[in-house]
Design a protein around this nucleic acid. Structure first.
Lengths: 228, 228
DNA sequence: GGGTCACGGGTACTGCGTACCATGACGGCA
DNA sequence: TGCCGTCATGGTACGCAGTACCCGTGACCC
């Protein structure tokens, strides 16, 4: 084995361990130490393979952003939701080549050539699920001291990340209905990015009389939410 | 003195100490301990006044996000590109006004007299990538019945991104006049949220005879739009 | 055999953010 | 006047991300 192959193996083991733990405990509850321990390597090795914990989910981030932006730039003004969803899907697929390892890439290419049409149909509806992912991600993180880069790039990278994770699980060829597998993977993504603690804080803007009426509804909902 | 006033005073002292230290050492080199010490309060008090170190320069974050959402919710589903773009621009300016008021106050009090590390190149490139992504997200959702919540989510991400970018650029000011650097950063953000150029692409559905009649009208309007 | 080099491991450190507990000031109350 | 609840504050300890530095190991070359 050459050195580069050995390093790739270590990196792959870290990725597998990380995603396993993300599935089990969620992203925030997964520590770097746990990832390194499960991968059977030291903590230092982890930070040599990845610049940060986020880097496991968002490798080579800048290149990804550039490619996504270039693909989206090709969408003409006034295009409908389907065109945008297709572009997002294609952009995500575009970066899969950058994300997946050699072995996964071969499998991905093989499967995508046969299943991309149906996948795209699925994506058009699935984009709304991704929006939920983003919403949940933001709810738990915006303004809570997360680094600015994470906040800034969630929108652009979130779709790629979710897509990546979904396809990564999907391409593992789970037996059974692939659509059901995709749904399970999506559920895993939602759980992975769920906020650590549900917020009991509600922000209400009062500018019009209707806002006051809405406030009463908010009060009721909060009150009921606080009931055991 | 009431308690709320005393707490406000503490908060103000913390803000003053923080910007003092940001001025002297830069944002990253300023620790929370140093801010608390200079303000003459304990570390715990700092985290009671601000949820995080970022919160010192990103105050009232949730409220601002709510205002953005409220503004965008006022746009009816199916509104045209101009209405959405206008709402987005107004919401962006609303947020920027809020934050830049804080910034102006601090800027008036504390001059950035020291040169701190210059803006990293990847941040400059990143802003352009965000610009494309956000614009495309908006463009794809215009008129397709998406809820205002989705638009709010997207623009909130953009606003947070943009504002954070401005502040980072400011706090890590480039060599030269910090005020001019801030103005340039602001100009970038405002340009980022400027309404996109009017589309020259029209999607026409032909299902009834009336549609054909409409096509002629479309042709005329496009033709006139193409006139200089 | 010895030197080099890439890689992994270990250790200690800084800093952010949280949890928990003690304290002292303030105000109500008997 | 003295007791007591409340609350802002401060101190301490902890967890975790990320960095710096040093050391061990094994492959490779001269």
């Amino acid at each position: 084995m050459t050195q580069s192959t050995a390093r790739e193996s270590t990196r792959e083991r870290l990725v597998a361990a990380a995603y396993d733990l993300f599935d089990e405990r969620g992203y925030d509850a997964t520590t770097v130490d746990a990832v390194a321990e499960r991968a059977g390597v030291g903590r230092t090795t982890f930070f040599r393979a990845f610049r940060s914990k986020d880097d496991v989910v968002l490798p080579d981030h800048d290149a990804v952003l550039a490619r996504v932006g270039a693909r989206l730039d090709a969408v003409p003004s006034g295009a409908g939701a389907t065109a945008v969803a297709t572009a997002a899907s294609e952009a995500a697929h575009l970066v899969l080549d950058h994300y997946l390892t050699e072995g996964d890439r071969a499998r991905a290419r093989y499967r995508l050539t046969r299943t991309v049409p149906s996948l795209r149909q699925r994506e058009v509806a699935g984009l709304q699920a991704y929006q939920r992912v983003f919403r949940e991600f933001f709810r738990g993180r915006v303004g809570d001291g997360e680094s600015g880069e994470v906040r800034a790039e969630v929108l652009a990278a979130g779709v790629v990340t979710a897509h990546n994770h979904v396809l990564r699980r999907w391409l593992r060829a789970e037996p059974g209905d692939p659509v059901a597998a995709l749904d399970r993977a999506l559920a895993d993504v939602l759980r992975m990015f769920a906020p650590p603690r549900p917020s009991r804080t509600r922000v209400v803007v009062l500018e019009t009389p209707d806002d006051v009426d809405d406030l009463e509804e908010v009060v009721r909902s909060v009150r009921s939410a606080l009931e055991p």
